[in-house]
């Protein structure tokens, strides 16, 4: 039951994250929205893992391990995106372009 509930939550997060990514103009908000989208995908995968519980485990350990790896990779990608953004803001400092 809770697997289905969190799976549906994951689907909703994918939709919300995708919307934020496409509709919000602020770059930092887009990075956050992309993380929401990723979190939703992980939750959908986690719901599938939970349904595969068996052999005394609370969930299928194979998807669980891959989600764990995915969280670390998503964090590494997020830092790279944020640092690119900060470099962009530092570069734009001296200039005074019209908006």
């Amino acid at each position: 039951m809770s697997a289905t509930l969190y799976g549906l939550l994951g689907a909703a997060l994918v939709g919300i994250g995708l919307f934020g990514l496409l509709a919000r103009p602020s770059p930092l908000l887009r990075i956050l929205a992309f993380n929401l989208l990723g979190g939703g995908v992980f939750l959908v995968f986690g719901a599938v893992a939970r349904r595969g519980a068996g052999a005394g485990f609370p969930g299928d350990p194979v998807p669980q391990a891959i989600i764990l790896t995915g969280i670390v990779v998503a964090f590494a990608a997020t830092t790279l995106a944020v640092m690119l953004l900060l470099r962009l803001s530092a570069e734009g400092e001296g200039r005074s372009d019209p908006p």
Binding site: S2, A3, F42, G46, A47, A49, F57, P58, G59, Q64
Partner: peptide, 8 residues
Amino acid sequence: VRLGAVDI
């Protein structure tokens, strides 16, 4: 935790 994935 509710999904039984304490590692995650």
